[in-house]
Amino acid sequence: MFEGDRVMKGKRMTKPLGMLVFLFALWNVGLTLFHGWPSLWWLGLGVDFLLIVGIAELLGKMIPPAYAPLYRRSLSVSFPLLLFIAWELLVRGGVLSPDWFPPPSRIVQALWELITKFDEFSKTSLLGRPWLLPGAVWGNRPETVEELLAESHLYATLMRVFVGFFLGSIPGILLGMVMGVSPTIRTMIDATLSAFYVLPKIAIFPIMMLIFPDPFGEGPKIAVVAISVFFLVTINTMVGVRDIEPVYLEAGKNYGASGFRLFYHVILPGALPVVFAGLRLALGTALIVIIAVEFVRAKTGVGFLTFYYWEILSPEKMYAGLVVVMVLGVLLTAGLKKVEQWVMPWRRP
């Protein structure tokens, strides 16, 4: 596109942009003045959304190409912010009930409370009061480091996910590789594996509680996470090995690789992308499973926290619990992504 063309377009678009902004203001002020929000909030939000899309679209065309990436990034950040503002206003305006949808401001407040306060009744805190850690380490506080960690919901959930994830994924990768390489083992195990794969893993939690000597301890919880992770990782690893381009195997063999060296230089790296896709899925599943397990049977954990505040009817703290789960999911996925980049530096960033 020519520069001149772009400038002309920019000029041509200022007018409709002004119109849209004006319409947007008119619509919202009008709806507020005539008390239309409580009954027509769905229409109000729908029209607002369309107008905002129109404004963003026009702005996007007027922005010089150099700033386009910055513009897109700010768009992806500011839209959720806008949603939060709309949520806040709808609750304050009495359209949404704060009992079901506590406004974001109160959720943030509740989150802050969860982080900073020790719950005397359940003898727990969200993060394990990290500001007491230095004192605990030097021994001039009554709490020990172990006690602080034991009272932390976040630590409890993280540990269960981590340990379960490792205990499940490492045997999963090994079995998946073996099944991918050996048709005999694959034929023997595949049907059984598929049958277990479709079983909702949370359903085996009671059995795990039966098997472990301490049914309420960490054992059954970690075992359920590990088993859920195991099947996902096994199947993905097997698919990853089988989907390696045959020409890579031919090249490996023609250049003298066989046995373990063929595995190490060709099969393992060739399967890694799909293995990691499986690990990402498994991580998500591990979070789902652990939260569900903590709903049912736990004295600590982010899932327990959310359920506990349902029992004592404190919706903003339930939401705060959900926020913690979301943040946990995002951080864990990002961490796995980092590991992935470190293990597979050859992939397109």
Binding site: E250, N254, Y255, G256, H265, P269
Partner: peptide, 25 residues
């Protein structure tokens, strides 16, 4: 030693590692 139609250079190895692959094996 074969040169393949679909390149078949290993995407997980650098140019140097690819070229040295046969010698390494």
């Amino acid at each position: 030693s074969m040169v393949f139609q679909e390149y078949a250079v290993f995407p997980w190895k650098t140019v140097l590692e690819n070229v040295a692959f046969g010698l390494q094996m």
